[in-house]
Amino acid sequence: MDAVLARMRALDQRLPAHDGVAVFNRVYLTVTETLHRRIDGGGFPEPRRAEGLTVRFAEYYLAAVEAAAEGYRTPACWRPLFQYRRHPGIRPLQYALAGINAHIGHDLALAVVSACRSLDCSPAALEGDFDRVGDTLVALEERIREELMPGPDLLEVADPVTHLLGSWSLQRARDGAWASARLLWTLRRTPDLAEDVTRSLDAGVGLVGRCLLTPLGVPRPRLPDRPALAWQ
């Protein structure tokens, strides 16, 4: 896990502070550091297994970042964040939610299946570790939202960010990831079907990410004054 944390810290130093990927990276670095402390502190009954799941989980995100940096095609779930990472009308909270959506909705399911293959066990054997990782994420979600809230306008029901916050749930994404992991594990002996399901999952999560990154803060261009009409 130390190597994964080092790569995230290097990204944090390298990326501009307002870059959308940098916003998510800071959030995810905090999450991974918290998980590292919990694992080292005895918060997981099987620390080796929990660390393996956490590392595999992180590597999907880091692989997507590296692919984008080298100009390669990235998974559909991550594409909106890379495409809109410098858009002036997107708020930091949106970048954080879009990254969490991609990572939980898509990467977590694949990480569970990868860990099961490596450990030669079924997802049921990892359910306790999955729940503990998820509990850590949920506990940090409220803090993330508070730190990245754009201001008191968020309290207004009509504010678009309020609508986005109510439209996406980390708990639902986590439940969906577990269901997807179980399905993919069941399909492991039919690779063509498993690939179709993975591709569909990737596309669906990417569509949600694109919605979360709807620009909300671009100032409207000022229209020229209308010329006076002759009869006015």
Score class of each variant (00 low, 15 high):
residue 157 V to D: 10
residue 59 E to Y: 01
residue 204 G to W: 03
residue 168 W to T: 06
residue 21 V to R: 08
residue 182 R to A: 08
residue 17 A to R: 14
residue 171 Q to W: 06
residue 122 S to H: 12
residue 24 F to D: 06
residue 17 A to Y: 06
residue 167 S to M: 13
residue 111 A to H: 08
residue 179 A to M: 11
residue 51 E to S: 10
residue 33 E to C: 10
residue 100 I to A: 15
residue 168 W to R: 11
residue 93 L to K: 01
residue 115 A to K: 01
residue 68 A to C: 05
residue 216 L to S: 08
residue 100 I to R: 13
residue 14 R to P: 00
residue 190 T to E: 14
residue 159 D to I: 00
residue 100 I to S: 12
residue 105 G to E: 02
residue 51 E to I: 00
residue 139 A to D: 12
residue 48 R to D: 14
residue 130 F to E: 07
residue 34 T to G: 09
residue 156 E to W: 03
residue 5 L to I: 15
residue 23 V to D: 01
residue 139 A to Q: 13
residue 149 M to I: 01
residue 115 A to E: 09
residue 222 R to W: 11
residue 67 A to D: 14
residue 97 L to C: 06
residue 151 G to V: 10
residue 85 R to N: 13
residue 33 E to R: 14
residue 99 G to E: 11
residue 138 V to Y: 04
residue 89 G to Y: 06
residue 167 S to Y: 12
residue 110 L to G: 02
residue 188 R to N: 09
residue 155 L to P: 00
residue 193 L to E: 14
residue 128 G to I: 02
residue 43 G to N: 04
residue 144 I to E: 03
residue 156 E to A: 10
residue 143 R to V: 03
residue 3 A to D: 15
residue 136 T to K: 01
residue 118 S to W: 10
residue 37 R to E: 07
residue 130 F to K: 03
residue 173 A to F: 00
residue 33 E to N: 07
residue 101 N to K: 03
residue 75 P to L: 03
residue 204 G to C: 02
residue 125 A to N: 00
residue 60 Y to T: 06
residue 195 E to F: 08
residue 231 W to I: 11
residue 227 P to D: 09
residue 103 H to P: 13
residue 43 G to T: 01
residue 46 E to C: 03
residue 129 D to I: 04
residue 112 V to R: 04
residue 172 R to I: 02
residue 73 R to A: 15
residue 156 E to R: 11
residue 71 G to H: 08
residue 225 D to Y: 07
residue 80 P to I: 07
residue 114 S to Q: 15
residue 144 I to W: 01
residue 49 R to W: 03
residue 129 D to R: 01
residue 84 Y to L: 15
residue 109 A to W: 09
